[in-house]
Amino acid sequence: MNSESAESLLAHALPPAARHDRFRRSFDAHHRKELVRFGVTPAQTERLERILPAIAYYTTQGPRLADVNVLLERLAKDAHKASTALRTLLDAPEHEQAHDESRLRLFEALLELHPERCEIDPQRVSFFHRYDPREDEARRLLSALADVESAASRACERSSTAEQTRAKSHDYPVGLIDAALSVDGPQVPPSESVGSAFFEIAGICYAAARGASTEPLRAIRAYLSTLNSRPEN
C-alpha cells in the first residue's frame, strides 16, 4: 500500500459505531515493547493505537440469539396490543360516549399532526355514506401496526432457525494495520506467515483490541485475498 492510499484509509478509519467508549483501546507497556521488538516506530505505534477501536468493533462477538428473540417477541406483542386497542376504538358502536369522544380526539390529533394525510377527497364525499379522511388515516396506521407485528413475528421465526451470530474475519482491520505501517517508516509487507513481522504486529494489535491473545490468521488471509483480487494485481 502506498503512502497516499494509506493516509486516505486512515483518515476515515473509524465508523461511527466504533467511536463508542466501549470500544476504546490502547497499548499497554508489554504491547509497546513487543512492537519495538518488531521494528515498529513511535509514529507507526501511534497510528496503530488509533485504529484499535476499529479492530475491537469488527471482531466483537455477535449478540445471543435468545436476547435478540426477546426484543423481537416484545415488539410483536406490543404492536399487537396497540393494533387491538386502535381497532377496538375505531370499530366500537356509535353513541357510546367514551368511545365517541376518544375517537373524535384521536381524529383531531391526527389532523394536527398530519394535515396532508387528512385532506378531503371531493370524489368520495356523499350524502349516503359517511366519509372522514381522518378515519382513513387512522385505518392506515392500523394497517401499519399489523405490518410491524407480522414483520417482527417473521423475523423472530427466522432468528429461531438461524445459527448464532459469530464474529467474522473482516479484512478491513488488517487493511488498517497495513495502512498504519505504510505511511512512513520501515515497510512491513502483509504476510500470513507465522513469525513474520506483519503477522506478529497484527497479533499484538488484535490482542490489545480484544483483551486476549488472538491469532488474526483468518483476517489476514481475507485481506490478502482482497488484495490479490484487485485488478491492478
Rank of each mutant, 00 (worst) to 15 (best):
E119S: 10
R210V: 09
H31V: 01
R154N: 06
P115K: 15
T214L: 15
A162P: 00
L111S: 01
Y223E: 15
V40D: 08
A13V: 04
R47H: 02
A17V: 02
A79P: 14
V40L: 10
P173L: 07
R19V: 01
L224H: 03
A6G: 05
R25M: 09
S159M: 14
R230W: 10
L14H: 01
D21P: 00
D147W: 15
Y58G: 02
E112W: 07
R19T: 03
V194R: 11
H129A: 11
P216Y: 00
F198T: 02
L145Q: 03
L90W: 14
D100P: 12
T161F: 15
S169D: 14
T60S: 12
L52D: 06
C205F: 12
S26Y: 10
L110N: 08
S5W: 15
C156G: 01
I120F: 06
A197S: 13
V125Q: 07
D147L: 13
R103E: 05
E137S: 10
A18R: 05
R64Y: 06
H12Q: 03
S182R: 11
E163H: 14
A82I: 04
R37E: 09
E116V: 10
R117N: 03
A144L: 15
I204T: 07
A207V: 05
A155Q: 08
T59L: 15
E96L: 12
A98H: 13
D184M: 04
T161D: 08
I51G: 02
P173Q: 05
R166T: 11
Q187F: 07
T41M: 06
D132Y: 12
A92M: 05
N233E: 09
A207L: 08
E46L: 09
V188R: 14
S169Q: 13
R140E: 03
D21Y: 11
D28R: 00
T41S: 12
A202I: 10
R25P: 00
R50S: 04
D171K: 13
Y223P: 15
L145S: 03
L65H: 08
V174L: 12
I204P: 14
V194H: 07
A151Q: 09
P133G: 11
E119H: 00
A66C: 00
F27K: 00
P186K: 03
Q164N: 05
L106K: 10
A209I: 10
L104T: 09
R117W: 13
A212V: 13
S225N: 15
R124D: 08
S126T: 06
R50V: 02
Q164S: 07
P93C: 01
E4A: 01
A76H: 13
A13P: 04
F27I: 00
E94G: 06
H99A: 02
S182K: 10
R103H: 06
E112S: 07
R32I: 04
A151C: 12
R103M: 04
K168L: 12
E232K: 03
A167Q: 08
K33R: 12
H80D: 04
A76T: 06
V194E: 11
A18Y: 04
S3R: 07
R64N: 08
A43T: 07
S5V: 03
P122R: 09
T59C: 13
P53M: 15
S3W: 01
S182Q: 09
D132K: 11
A179G: 01
E101D: 05
A202W: 15
A209L: 09
D67G: 01
E149G: 08
D28G: 03
R140D: 01
E232S: 10
I204V: 12
L10E: 01
S193P: 06
Q61N: 06
T41H: 00
G203I: 03
R124P: 15
